[in-house]
Design a protein around this nucleic acid. Structure first.
Lengths: 210, 210
DNA sequence: ACCTGAACACCGTTCAAGT
DNA sequence: ACCTGAACACCGTTCAAGT
């Protein structure tokens, strides 16, 4: 009786049925990745840090890959939300939306290194994680949409929007990824500015070509 | 006496002092990466496949990271050799050397997936592996050189060659890396053609801009 | 329904010992 | 000089058992 009341009124500090253990595990995993990288992620450490047995995780995720895929999928969702926000805030006749999108992408990678490393650094088979594939496609789809908008306004040449998007996506990803592990030969410019410059060149070249 | 003669005349099949074990270990590691990816690389398996104890490797490499760094470094050396060959064969007044270089880079990634995955997929700290850093810079340096050549011939705008090289390198890397794990949203074009198109746009945009 | 603990088959690395 | 074998401190995952 007393026990039941206690359970109902005040949340127990270490109750058996953890409740939101799933969210806790994801947050803890992000902490580990932030501190030591995706490669150092360990279910045993996640369990220990979450104050739970090392096998409790298997109640909420199929296996380690599923946990990693969830984090990657969350990352693409966050990136897409960022890109959506940029498109919404861009003035409707601005010619540089694509450049701002690229800068936002690179900035996202810098601001969320754990998510970004998991999104692109882990060798996940997307066929086995359909939600991850869906979120990744949706994020890239924002660039395709922005390109169609720009073409409609005549701010961009009339090439295949998906082709242009692939090039800009690969360029932006390349800068974000190489930059975040300081693999860019020289960093004369900050990565964001480099991405803006690159996307501008692609836009211009794509406007005169064909 | 007889034993010594045998050792001297015919190479023993399983002699104690292996001799070229170092090369054998590298080749075996490449086989494992080719079959199951960098993440599945295991010193124990390399040892077993090379017919040697699992700790024999420590006579030739500081640790596992040193073995991986050696493979990555070899990869950058091979890539540079490819790029050097392309530049040497390009007719001196050709305007498309940069596009051919990009295509060659993407083709190299496809033809040498084990090396490429190790070069860019493993989280190696280049400060701890100076030879790797040197080879990587040298490979990228070929692009800088080709850009200077193109500018000298007036086939390219007069922007900072290192800046242009960074953009082209990131673009080519992005296409090669995303393409090899089929993370490019659509593959309307083969990755080589996509890289050629992207580099052409950058060249053209960089010629009109500024 | 949710979690634990022991068990299994793996890891990288160290080190004394063998040849 | 080069390699082995046992040992150590780790892994992911399974499964019977507890609450």
């Amino acid at each position: 009786m007393l026990v039941l009341l206690a359970k109902a009124s005040t949340p127990q500090k270490r109750r058996y049925h953890h409740g939101d253990l799933e969210r806790t595990l994801v947050a803890t995993a992000l902490d580990v990745i932030h501190a030591e990288g995706v490669e150092a992620l360990t279910l045993r450490r996640v369990g220990a840090m979450a104050g739970v047995s090392r096998t409790a995780l298997y109640r909420h995720f199929d296996d380690k890959a599923a946990l990693v895929a969830r984090i990657a999928s969350d990352g693409f969702r966050l990136l897409r939300e960022t890109l959506v926000r940029v498109r919404a805030n861009a003035s409707p006749d601005a010619g540089d939306t694509l450049e701002v999108l690229a800068a936002a992408h690179v900035h996202f990678a810098r601001a969320n290194p754990s998510h970004y490393a998991t999104m692109f650094g882990s060798a996940l088979d997307r066929r086995k994680h359909p939600d991850l594939a869906r979120q990744a496609d949706a994020a890239c789809g924002e660039v395709v949409g922005a390109i169609r908008d720009a073409q409609r306004r005549g701010a961009l040449g009339s090439g295949d929007p998906e082709l242009i998007a692939e090039v800009m996506w690969a360029l932006t990803f390349g800068i974000a990824r190489l930059g975040s592990s300081s693999q860019l030969p020289r960093t004369a410019l900050p990565a964001e500015a480099l991405a803006v410059q690159g996307v501008r060149w692609v836009s211009d070249g794509c406007q005169m070509g064909v």
